Simulated scan of single mutants.
Amino acid sequence: MGVIIAAISAAYFTLYPQDAYAMHIMEGMLPPKWCLFWFAAAAPFFVYGLYRMKRIVTSSQQNAKIMLALCGAFVFVLSSLKLPSVTGSCSHPTGVGLGTVMFGPGVMAVLGVIVLLFQALLLAHGGLTTLGANEFSMTIVGPLVGFAVWKLCRAFKVNRSVSLFLCAMLADWSTYITTAFQLAVVFPDPNTGMWGAAVKFLGIYAVTQIPLAIAEGLLTVIVYNLVISNNLWKESALG
Rank of each mutant, 00 (worst) to 15 (best):
G2E: 06
I4V: 14
I4E: 00
I4K: 12
I5V: 15
A7Y: 13
I8W: 14
A11F: 11
T14V: 14
T14C: 12
P17I: 08
D19P: 01
D19R: 08
A20V: 05
A20T: 09
Y21R: 04
I25C: 12
E27L: 05
E27H: 02
M29G: 06
L30T: 03
L30Q: 08
P32K: 14
C35W: 05
L36N: 13
L36C: 13
A41I: 15
P44G: 04
V47P: 08
G49C: 03
L50S: 05
R52E: 10
M53V: 02
K54G: 11
R55A: 11
I56R: 08
V57E: 10
V57L: 15
T58H: 05
T58G: 05
S59E: 12
A64W: 04
A64I: 06
A64G: 00
I66V: 10
M67Q: 07
L68H: 02
A69C: 10
G72K: 11
G72M: 03
A73R: 01
V75G: 09
K82V: 15
K82S: 07
L83M: 14
P84C: 06
P84N: 02
T87I: 09
G88E: 10
G88W: 06
S89M: 05
S89Q: 02
C90S: 13
T94D: 01
L98V: 12
L98C: 03
M102T: 02
F103H: 01
M108A: 09
M108P: 03
L111A: 04
G112M: 09
I114P: 09
I114Y: 14
L117T: 01
A120K: 00
A124C: 01
A124F: 13
L131E: 08
N134L: 04
M138R: 09
V141A: 04
V141W: 07
C153Y: 14
R154E: 11
F156Q: 08
K157P: 03
K157W: 00
N159T: 00
S163N: 09
W173P: 09
T175N: 11
Y176L: 10
Y176F: 13
I177S: 13
T179Q: 00
F181A: 03
V185F: 15
T192H: 15
M194F: 10
A197L: 08
F201T: 07
G203D: 07
A206T: 09
V207M: 13
L218E: 07
L219E: 02
V221W: 07
I222P: 03
V223P: 13
Y224M: 15
N225E: 06
L226C: 14
I228M: 11
S236K: 14
A237Y: 09
